[in-house]
């Protein structure tokens, strides 16, 4: 009886063959460009050479990892990646919410539109262009900032030889690029809040600040939590585009600005150190996966509606 009721796998495929065929192009893409490379992660345990390929290169146990950890690189890039990402996530969230709340209260439609357009603009350009901006501002000989400093009689600064500047610059640039995007995101969440809440509060005599802290922020909390958790899930994935374009392979800055992604890239294409590249990549992928699983499990326990999957 049961077997009659439950059509099998092939029966389902045959019944909806057109639909499954329509899914095929995307499926083939993900198999070729995501799942096959996923299996290739075993290269982290191999002494890779091009002649034998991933499949036939000899195994070398955990040799690749030994060097990655013993050299102290693992600790350094992990610390840098997490540190920058935590700072980025924190300021991005705070500023995006702040700007979104401010814009939502502004009365002038034109002002709203124009300021939002300006803020959103950096989202559309690549980090390549941002690095051109940096050059305009901080070039030692001609840069705008250095000109200004010289005009005031101060010494010009050379950001490409002094790591400490980047602790400020990178977060500021990150904010510059993403605050527009973030404020659009939170603005759409704010516009979903029922206006009656505010009207009722006004009747009860609440002032602007009370409304923000007692209505807007609490109602934004679920959105914020979700986005923060997504951010935490990606805490070990660095902004490669940003770091590589702005800093590149600058040896003077590397200890303070090397993240996992730049290390992997440099080992792979620069020094051709496949062992290091694959070990660091494996470490990043597996840890990321574990973190996101843990995060999701916690979210599902607390509030199953908000779980990612």
């Amino acid at each position: 009886m049961k077997s009659l009721k439950k059509p099998g796998f092939f029966h389902e495929l045959a019944k909806n063959k057109v639909l499954y065929l329509m899914f095929l192009p995307v499926a083939v893409y993900y198999i070729l460009f995501a799942y096959v490379p996923m299996l290739g992660i075993v290269v982290a345990f191999k002494d890779f050479n091009y002649r034998d390929g991933i499949l036939f290169s000899p195994w070398n146990g955990v040799d690749n990892f030994r060097y990655f950890f013993v050299s102290g690189k693992a600790l350094q890039v992990t610390t840098n990646t997490i540190m920058y990402n935590v700072v980025f996530l924190a300021i991005y969230t705070i500023f995006s919410i702040m700007v979104a709340i401010m814009i939502s209260e502004l009365a002038s439609k034109i002002f709203k539109k124009v300021s939002q357009s300006f803020m959103f603009l950096p989202y559309f350009i690549s980090w390549v262009v941002v690095s051109a901006f940096m050059y305009n501002f901080f070039n030692y000989d001609y840069g705008l900032v250095n000109n200004f400093l010289r005009a005031l009689g101060n010494e010009p600064i050379n950001i490409y030889s002094e790591p400490s500047y980047w602790y400020i610059l990178l977060p500021v640039l990150y904010l510059w690029k993403w605050v527009g995007f973030g404020s659009v995101l939170y603005l759409s969440a704010i516009s979903g809040i029922d206006q009656e809440c505010y009207e009722a509060a006004t009747i009860d005599g609440a002032n602007m600040f009370q409304k923000i802290f007692k209505i807007t922020l609490p109602l934004l909390k679920p959105t914020v939590v979700i986005l923060l958790l997504l951010g935490v899930g990606r805490i070990l994935r660095g902004e490669f585009d940003m770091f590589y374009n702005l800093i590149g392979n600058n040896g003077l800055l590397i200890d303070n600005t090397d993240i996992i992604d730049t290390l992997v890239f440099r080992s792979l294409l620069g020094t051709q150190d496949f062992g290091m590249a694959s070990a660091a990549g494996f470490y990043q992928s597996v840890l990321c996966f574990l973190i996101i699983m843990i995060v999701n499990t916690i979210v599902r326990k607390v509030d199953s509606e908000s779980a990612l999957f």
């Binding site: 993900y30 460009f33 995501a34 799942y35 096959v36 490379p37 996923m38 299996l39 290739g40 992660i41 290269v43 982290a44 890779f48 091009y50 390929g53 991933i54 992604d261 992997v264 890239f265 792979l268 294409l269 496949f274 590249a277 694959s278 660091a280 990549g281 494996f282 990043q284 992928s285 990321c288 996966f289 996101i292 699983m293």
Partner: peptide, 18 residues
Amino acid sequence: TTLFNGGLASYYITLSST
């Protein structure tokens, strides 16, 4: 595929030499 990937080394080798 957004949760897990094989890392850049594997991706690069797969696309370029396979």
